[in-house]
């Protein structure tokens, strides 16, 4: 078996895995009832994006630093997003005594 036939050298496997992560993230984002659960699902979507970037970076790009730097930037943005989102969640919990997404609906009338 030549090394190029192994499934870890085929880009489709990584792309399918990234698609699975993205789909799981979308499912969690729709079905989760707490804000932290939705945040975790959003992190899965971020991971899917960086896995996709690195797959294309490994197989189809002439300059292999581009995708790695993009994945690094995605990680930094995810960290910033988590910091902000968690502080908002803590503030919401202080005011509403709940992190349930349904509880924060005063404006819906």
């Amino acid at each position: 078996m030549s090394p190029n036939q192994l499934c870890c050298h085929r880009p489709e496997v990584y792309l399918a895995l990234a698609a699975f992560l993205f789909a799981a993230g979308v499912f969690g984002l729709v079905r989760r009832r707490t804000l932290i659960g939705m945040l975790i699902a959003g992190e899965l979507i971020f991971s899917a994006a960086s896995l996709n970037f690195l797959t294309f970076n490994r197989f189809f790009v002439e300059d292999p630093t581009v995708g790695q730097l993009m994945a690094l930037f995605i990680m930094a943005l995810a960290a910033a997003e988590v910091a902000i989102a968690l502080s908002i969640i803590i503030a919401v919990y202080r005011n509403y005594r709940s992190i349930n997404a349904k509880a924060v609906s005063e404006l819906s009338g």
């Binding site: 932290i36 975790i40 803590i90 919990y93 709940s98 992190i99």
Partner: peptide, 12 residues
Amino acid sequence: IIFAVMLAEPDE
């Protein structure tokens, strides 16, 4: 996130 889970309500 674990810190936030400990500070807020733990379960759905």
